[in-house]
Design a protein around this nucleic acid. Structure first.
Lengths: 250, 250
DNA sequence: TACAAAATCAATCATAATCTTTCATAAGCA
DNA sequence: TGCTTATGAAAGATTATGATTGATTTTGTA
């Protein structure tokens, strides 16, 4: 049986069953347990399902969207890889700031059992945070409807109540000379302060942002560690001369 | 049976039954008592239910899905009448605080064309606020999963950034001697401060709360105007001797 | 009210099931 | 052939489960 056939079978079954056991799939496909496990892991990376102990569960598919394009899927797994590395840096008991944004959002499910305290300015993170029982505080501020981020002087004022072990920020531009940038000046201000209030500040981004310069300057490369993926090695070396960097490859 | 399947089953049952015994679940799932206990403990940690001796109980968050009962509907129209009067007090250009809660929520659509600035600590208000294009600020703070309210010192600290023309608060208890009360001390503290920071403070409640005393004291009757509905006239007169009051009848 | 019996509870332990990692083999392809 | 990818199997770690114990709470009865 072809790999893609198994994948399709699994997804079809989950359209009807809400959840399914690995053993059932082993019998249905007469593939080995290992293979089914790999299938489930891959489908989870594509956010087609959620793995649970003993099987898999249908993910909230309130989006009537068809399947993701290959490019988007690749982007997604890239974000996931970055998020996985970022989450691995978080230790039990840490107090962390998680910036609004889709890349940082991927981190949240991975923090479930770390007993962390999370502060965020991202309204869209709330559902995942409460869903996974993570202790969470929200900054105040003006609600930027488009991004669901809380910004403005009140957001920054809110931040002053906290000190973080680690801050995880998303950015739109990453440039050797111009540092980290993002389109919105108010969001940039929040990111900047969140970074300053942390012992360690990490910027999460994918390689498509390298060389880009967006409108609002956050801070320079040397003021944060960078978690990125997929850059050619000579580029990495060039950046490493100017900043602390972490690179997750493959 | 998968762990998540049991969890889902339990939650589904609680959508219809309000409470359920452990022994029932043992029979339904043919899992051991220990396992069911663990399930309930985990779901309680996620604020999905409340453990009681012998079983578990639904919490306010997961209301039963089906249409509103007649009684609840009546309750709703009562809330709506109260909200309508409250909204009629709001003038163009006002800056107001709207407390978390279902009664105050009814006000939001009625503010659409008033060009108001709203500050709220209620996460569940956000959708309506953005949908109606109302300029909104959110207080920061700890997320109380059950009510979707932001509370704690950080929430109060957030409030200090603002001054309101009017504050609209919800309460659970209303008593001649014991004033306004609500079950949660942290929410009470937020309400109190929000009231203090406004030129005028209005409390919205339905007549079922009259004579009730909840745990946490907010402030006394004389410190706010009361918007209520459906009280007998002699009761109204009795209260009017002790406080400023607005009564919306029918 | 007091007291005993029954039910329920939290904590612990051993076992079974499942998971991750690793390695070796097989299959597809230039 | 040489290279990549998919597969299955196995070892050791992790997690879920069911049974047991003694403590706690509720219930029944006087």
């Amino acid at each position: 049986m072809l790999t893609t056939e198994r994948h399709q079978l699994i997804l079809d079954l989950l359209k009807e069953k809400q959840s399914i056991k690995i053993q059932e799939l082993v019998e249905l496909t007469s593939a080995s347990e290992s293979t089914i496990r790999r299938d489930l892991t891959e489908l989870e990376d594509l956010q087609k399902l959620e793995r649970v102990f003993g099987g898999a569960r249908r993910i909230a598919q309130n989006m009537p969207e068809p399947s993701l394009s290959d490019k988007a899927a690749k982007h997604l797994s890239e974000k996931l890889r970055i998020a996985r590395y970022a989450a691995s840096l978080v230790q039990t008991g840490d107090a962390i700031f998680i910036d609004a944004g889709t890349t940082t959002a991927q981190m949240i499910p991975l923090l479930k059992d770390k007993d962390v305290t999370v502060v965020t300015n991202g309204l869209s993170h709330l559902e995942a945070l409460t869903e996974h029982g993570i202790t969470a505080y929200l900054t105040g501020g003006f609600i930027k409807a488009r991004t669901g981020a809380l910004v403005g002087p009140q957001a920054i004022q809110s931040l002053e109540s906290y000190r973080f072990d680690k801050s995880f920020l998303g950015v739109n531009g990453l440039h050797i000379d111009h540092g980290f940038t993002t389109p919105d000046p108010e969001e940039a201000a929040v990111k900047r302060r969140a970074g300053e209030l942390a012992k360690s500040c990490y910027v999460l981004t994918d390689q498509s942002k390298y060389g880009q310069v967006s409108f609002a300057h956050i801070f320079n490369l040397s003021e944060a560690a960078l978690i990125i993926d997929g850059l050619p090695e000579e580029t990495v070396e060039e950046i490493e001369r100017q900043t602390t960097i972490k690179v997750v490859t493959q």
